[in-house]
Simulated assay, not measured.
Amino acid sequence: MSASESKKQKTFFWSHGGPTFMYKTSKDVPGANTPYNYVEKFGHRVKSEFKPKYIAVISAHWQPRYAGPESMKKVYVASPKNLDQVIDNDEKIPNDLIYDFYNFPKYMYEEKFESYVTKGIIDKIISFSDENVTVEKTERGIDHGVWVPSKVAKLDVYDSKEDFIPFVQVSMLPNIPNGNGEDERLNENANIVDTFKAHIQTISPLIRKINEDGGLVILSGMSVHNLSIFKKVISEQKHPEFVKRFNELLRNIIEEDKKSKDNHSALRAKILDLGKENSDNIKKLFEAHSPEIDHFLPFVIGVGSISEGEYITELFNAEEYSLGWGLYQVGS
């Protein structure tokens, strides 16, 4: 079946790393070779086995700021400049790149990732708006949570331009503030449980619609993402135990879900429980994702998107310093 034919597609979560992930041997991120190899093989499967009509990525690096309750029912689709002037719905329009990383060597800001989107794909995702969510387009490039791991996956390498699988990026929702501080992106200032619930209720159904339209969805975050201590643990050559514990926690939760046969109600309850102040596991969540929860939200979206009789499967994971490199298949 060709990529242009519509068939129900799959959803995956991958850990996207930083710009150093683009290089198979990186002295900046020792040990990143193994996830590099796996993501590279995964990209081959996308092109040779899955053959989606398009790839839609939800990245941890596109989270709008909270602007009241109405902002929790609105997501955005990244649109190239001057899209309204395009007449042909199938014309491949280049995506601009956002170099949203800081204080790295100059050559990393000169890297390219060639990708395209079409007006027809953007309009189709906008048409998935319903009473739960409004989808709007906004002029924007694709951020490094999209293009860096996709470059590792060689999703910009094809025999001809006609073979390219179109790329489109969709935003997450904001974090809901808890009233304790101005910056609701911080764990201590966010209402984590309600933010989790909003992503499950609002974006997860949108993921299923994209899959049914033939779009392969990639949820791009990190299974563990604690940059606040990253440089320190590298310099001290330490591997904090919480990274492994948090990966194991997720592993146990999704394995128990396969045994429960309760249509994922216990799975969702355990994920929400991570955000409760009285939860035994809240400290692990803060340790693993401090100071922000943005890199965990794509996983939460995945938890909400699986249907009855389908499950989350861990395809690969590794712990390196204060990072976790989980890759999961979400559903069947």
Rank of each mutant, 00 (worst) to 15 (best):
L327I: 15
E277W: 05
K238S: 07
E131D: 15
R251Y: 12
I165M: 05
L323S: 04
V75T: 15
D100A: 03
K27I: 12
V29P: 03
E182N: 12
G326V: 09
S48G: 09
A60P: 15
T202W: 03
Q169I: 01
G181H: 08
E111S: 13
V77D: 03
A60R: 00
T202G: 04
I293K: 02
L267I: 09
R251A: 12
S160K: 05
K231L: 12
Q329C: 09
I254S: 01
I271W: 00
E131S: 14
P64I: 08
K231H: 15
R251W: 07
T195H: 05
V168M: 03
F286W: 14
A60E: 09
S2C: 10
E248Q: 13
I176F: 02
E314Y: 06
V168W: 00
S6K: 15
I254N: 02
I218D: 00
P240K: 09
L227K: 03
S260E: 07
I282R: 00
R185N: 13
G68T: 08
K259E: 14
I165E: 01
Q169W: 07
L155C: 09
Y102P: 12
I301G: 01
A269S: 10
G302W: 01
N317Y: 10
H295S: 06
F113P: 00
S160H: 12
K112D: 07
I125H: 02
N278I: 04
V29G: 01
E256V: 08
Y102G: 10
K27Q: 10
G17R: 00
R45D: 15
Y321V: 11
I301Y: 01
H239L: 08
K261D: 15
N175R: 07
E236D: 11
I142C: 02
